[in-house]
Design a binder for these strands. Structure first.
Length: 692
DNA sequence: GCAAGGTC
């Protein structure tokens, strides 16, 4: 009886695979830390075990983080790098579970990383060198039927092309990231009392550069004036507005001419137009779309959305969230999910309506993912969900229901008026068919505007013509959600890592604020790299790595060649930076000193308006309080009490909605809360308790 | 206390 070991990428996959392959759908669970299963399937015995994402990672023997170049690297168990007891036990038990089998099956996600995760387990944990004992199973939706088919049709050997491509990607990112980070970090050492960690990477640095370019576009923006013309029209005793047919008038002389030509007191209704427009059913959620929508609807940051979605997934309430697919294949079992959802009274009516139409044909989006379908609810329900989880689950559920619905429709009405020689337009719109908007409520409701019903040939009274001067606006700053979208557009980062990378930029203090601004340090990092390694600033590096990976995958170029070329280039860059170390260090450390100085600034002083309100700790008493920097110059008097240790107080970019004073974040042993620093704030319904 | 990529 041949014995197989199937290796999944994650516990959920191992569970699904073992249930699908067991003839009685009751696999026997083994393993204390690693969810693993013994499966009976015909005349073979199968053990299903699982990795936990990457179990191995690259490291270097040069552990001092101020020494470079680092050109040596090797794969080591992940737990040896970050001292993770759980991963250590995981690897140990996984090794035992897989000993003594005849065949190994890599059933990790069918993509580059999945191929590499399985490969590393095979070579490092099980010491497999004979690829005749190895198979690759190709899975995407993890439904019973698909898993059974994939097991029958698994291919012999491994997808070594994908593996090598993946390994090269890891090496290139590692070498560039570690070396450039160390070079910059080292340069500032001699100028600072305590070390400050700087980082550079193939994804984070181009992302920072996007923000710098936007910042420059905003700073150099010159507003242009333009004029808007409106006519106030009296209809049945009520005043209504019509806009000049050209939205923006570019010159003042043109405005004067128009006003003269429109000097008549009568408006003729020249035409009444009615046009119907479809509002299409939205695509199913992939992770990025979900993150964007949750930001729009709830104000959740992308990383918060991912972490909530993760919890929902681990509670089996939604499908796998780290997907870039917008497709809902029939395999997931539409009807069963819908029927389960209908048990929840909030969705009963919507489901009944969908089922009553007979055919279940959800909208499919454009984007795809080799390893997962779009995000959908499983139909399960749990009592103990917090409000964030409830919100996100409701959003995912309603989006899923919406994809089975019909397009909505609106009518756009335009009353075209002529005043003298000039045409003005009164525009309104109304939803005429709710379609999917009904189940997706309250998450999307297009604006509606009613206008009076007129007939062609009607004559109306003009009350007056209003001219308003306006100015063009600079480009908007990015927020975490729009930045995420831009990264996706440029193809940098992956669905699972983009939000983390944005967090890294905040953590390093390269950027600040919800409406993102680049700090002086962020600018300095970019200008330094522009001098020494412009390639890492652009998305071009990602494209090059990708094209090299494709060549490696199809055997057009060898892994070693790509790595050697990268090393040579890197050595050159590092030599240049090394030669200019003092120069570079001075530039960067100046920005760091500014950041450290501003770190305790909680906002502008609300009393004198000139100084900064700062958190300081008294040398004498050890007490924490807030003080305006102008107090030291005898130009202000403001000092304010703040919570004391063991609580911590951090600056935020928020201000109080009732008094406009700065708001600080207070981190207690229990949970963080936000405090307006104004001791006599009128909005304070619950004054904070005095801490001991 | 360094990257980006998996996953809890």
């Amino acid at each position: 009886m041949p014995k197989y070991l199937i290796i999944a990428e994650k516990p959920e996959a191992a569970r699904r695979i073992s249930e699908a392959l067991d003839s009685k759908a009751k696999p026997k669970k083994i393993g204390r830390v690693v969810p693993s299963f013994v499966v009976k399937n015909g005349d073979c015995e199968i053990i299903v075990t699982t990795a936990l994402g990457h179990l191995y990672e690259l490291t270097t023997t040069i552990s001092d983080r101020t020494i470079y170049p680092v050109l040596d690297y090797k794969w080591v168990p992940k737990h040896t790098v970050e001292r993770n007891k759980r991963l250590e036990e995981w690897l140990e038990e996984m090794g035992k579970i897989g000993s003594g089998v005849d065949y190994y099956v890599n059933a990790c996600d069918y993509d580059i990383e999945g191929s590499l995760i399985g490969y590393n387990v095979l070579r490092f944990l099980y010491g497999v060198s004979d690829y005749r004992r190895v198979f690759r199973m190709k899975l995407s939706t993890l439904t019973n039927r698909e898993i059974q088919e994939a097991f029958k049709r698994m291919s012999p050997g491994l997808d070594l092309g994908l593996v090598k491509a993946g390994e090269t990607r890891h090496i290139i990112d590692f070498l560039y990231g570690i070396n450039l980070s160390r070079a910059l970090t080292r340069s500032v050492l001699r100028f600072l009392r305590t070390p400050y960690v700087l980082s550079v990477g193939r994804v984070q640095t181009p992302t920072l550069n996007i923000l710098v370019e936007r910042e420059i576009a905003i700073e150099t923006f010159i507003p242009d004036p333009y004029w808007v013309l409106r006519a106030e029209i009296v209809i049945n005793g009520e005043t209504h507005e019509a806009l000049y047919e050209v939205e923006k008038v570019q010159s003042l002389s043109e405005v004067k001419r128009l006003v003269e030509e429109a000097s008549s007191k009568k408006a003729f209704v020249e035409k009444v137009e009615r046009r119907f427009e479809k509002i299409s059913v939205p695509e199913p959620f992939d992770l990025t779309t979900l993150q964007r929508e949750a930001y729009r609807v709830f104000g959740f940051t992308p990383s918060r959305t991912l972490s909530i979605a993760e919890t929902l997934y681990l509670n089996a309430l939604i499908s796998y969230p780290r997907t870039s697919s917008q497709k809902l294949p029939p395999d997931i079992g539409y009807r069963e999910i819908l029927e389960k959802l209908s048990e929840n009274s909030s969705y009963t009516k919507a489901v009944e309506k969908i089922l009553s139409r007979g055919v279940l044909n959800p909208k499919q989006g454009r984007k795809d993912d080799p390893a997962h379908p779009a995000i959908y609810p499983t139909g399960e329900w749990k009592e103990e969900l917090n409000s964030d989880q409830l919100k996100l689950l409701d959003l995912v559920t309603k989006r899923f229901l919406a994809t089975f619905e019909e397009d909505a429709e609106k009518v756009i009405c335009r009353n075209i008026l002529r005043i003298g020689n000039v045409r003005f337009i009164m525009k309104g719109s109304m939803i005429t068919k709710k379609g999917w908007l009904e189940v997706y409520s309250p998450y999307y409701s297009p604006e509606e505007k009613t206008i009076p019903l007129l007939k062609e040939g009607d004559i109306l009274t003009v009350k007056k013509i209003i001219v308003e001067e306006k100015f063009t606006n600079p480009p908007r700053r990015y927020n975490p959600a729009s930045l995420l979208r831009e990264m996706e557009k440029l193809g940098i980062g992956t669905k699972a890592t983009r939000s983390e990378i944005i967090e890294t930029l905040y953590k390093r203090r390269y950027i600040i604020g919800k409406s993102i601004s680049v700090t002086e340090l962020g600018f300095s990092i970019v200008s330094t790299l522009r001098r020494f390694s412009p390639k890492i600033l652009s998305a071009e590096m990602t494209r090059m790595v990708e094209s090299d990976m494709e060549k490696i995958e199809s055997g057009l170029i060898e892994e070693e060649k790509v790595v050697d070329a990268a090393k040579r280039e890197l050595i050159e860059i590092l030599r240049e930076v090394g030669n200019r170390e003092v120069d570079v260090g001075k530039h960067l450390s100046n920005s760091i000193i500014t950041i450290l100085r501003n770190r305790n600034v909680i906002g502008k002083c609300p009393v004198c308006g000139k100084g900064d309100l700062k958190i300081i700790v008294s040398r004498k008493t050890g007490k924490r309080f807030g003080i305006c920097t102008n107090v030291f110059r005898n130009r202000c008097m403001l000092t304010i009490p703040l919570p004391q240790n063991p609580n911590k107080v951090y600056a935020t970019d928020k201000t109080c909605s009732s008094c406009g004073w700065p708001i600080v974040k207070v981190v207690t042993r229990k949970r963080p809360w936000y405090l307006c620093v104004n001791p006599s704030c009128p909005g304070k319904t619950n004054p904070p308790k005095k801490s001991a």
